[in-house]
Simulated scan of single mutants.
Amino acid sequence: MRPPAIALADASAAYDGRPVLRGIDLTIRAGERLALMGRSGAGKSTLIGLIHAQAPERIALVPQGAALVRQLSVFHNVYMGRLDRTSTIHNLRNLVWPASADWAEVARVLARVGLAEAIRAKAGALSGGQQQRVSVARALYNGQPILLADEPVSALDRAQGAAVLAEMARTHETLVLALHDIALALAHTDRIVVLDMGRIVLDAPARDLDAAALAPFYEPAA
């Protein structure tokens, strides 16, 4: 059995004194492809935050919403994925005159998400779906072994979303994805964890589930 990449034991979280997560026991092993699912407000984004806090140095993060610097180019937004690995002088130089090697590497990553032609565009001029793909490209460029993503394909159609999820899986050892799309979760992950009212209510292999088994967790709470 592969070693744990992330382990949470009886974890909890609260905002303004209101419990959001309670009694979370979750072990994610290296090489797993895990989908976090559940209706809006179930606690998925909060759990993403707890997971990230366990090992930020080994995680590439796609936050909910693109979280881009709208005034900067697509190149610069993707390049930010590795700012901590190069000198301040190099980073400042790249802000004005990008190094050819960095430009070429960012262009290759953007091609993986279908945005090579947008490398010079201002991030704020892109559509919502394009901005989401830039955010994914930044995480791919970051290159850490664990990719943690909060609704990374919510602004894409199913075909585009499937292509992007496949790219994530191609180069990252471990994936943890908060997803709403049941079909994409079943097709692109091997384990599904469902949250409801701040607790894990289902944790099962994707091969043992189908859309009918997951649909009740997306119906309005009684």
Rank of each mutant, 00 (worst) to 15 (best):
I119N: 04
P19A: 10
L214Q: 08
I59L: 06
A121W: 00
D10M: 09
L186A: 05
A116I: 00
Y15F: 15
R191C: 02
T27R: 14
L175K: 02
H172G: 11
A178E: 06
D157Q: 00
L61C: 01
A123N: 05
L95I: 09
A55E: 05
R58Q: 13
A162Q: 05
R170S: 13
Q64Y: 02
D150L: 11
A107L: 13
K44A: 06
A204E: 14
D190Q: 15
A183K: 08
L36F: 06
A139Q: 07
A187D: 15
R170K: 08
G31H: 04
Q144D: 12
E105G: 14
I146S: 07
G198E: 01
R2C: 12
S73F: 01
L47D: 04
A139Y: 00
A7R: 15
L175M: 14
N142G: 07
T174S: 03
A14M: 08
A101Y: 12
R18H: 15
I146D: 00
R170D: 02
V96R: 13
F75T: 11
P63H: 06
A204K: 12
I48T: 05
G43L: 05
L72P: 04
A7F: 03
P98V: 13
P98R: 12
L34Q: 03
S100A: 15
D10K: 12
I6W: 06
L195R: 12
L61V: 07
G49D: 13
A185D: 11
H90F: 13
A107D: 14
S12N: 08
A163Y: 02
I192V: 11
L177K: 05
R170N: 03
H52G: 09
V193P: 10
H180Y: 12
A183L: 11
D25I: 02
A101W: 11
L140V: 12
A66E: 07
A162Y: 03
M80Q: 10
I6D: 01
V69P: 00
Q54A: 08
V74Y: 05
I48A: 08
A178M: 04
A55D: 13
W103S: 10
R33V: 06
D102N: 13
V193E: 09
T189H: 09
H180L: 07
A5L: 08
V20F: 04
A162N: 04
D10W: 05
A53S: 11
R22W: 01
A212Y: 00
V176D: 08
A204S: 13
A55R: 14
L34E: 05
T171R: 11
A162C: 01
D157H: 08
M37C: 04
K44P: 12
A206E: 09
E105Q: 15
D208E: 15
V62S: 03
L214E: 12
P4F: 06
L72R: 05
G41P: 10
T86F: 08
E105Y: 10
L61R: 02
W97N: 13
R138M: 09
S73P: 03
P3R: 09
A185M: 01
D150S: 10
I59F: 02
R170V: 03
Y79L: 15
V69S: 04
Y15Q: 07
A187K: 11
G65Y: 04
D196W: 05
P3K: 13
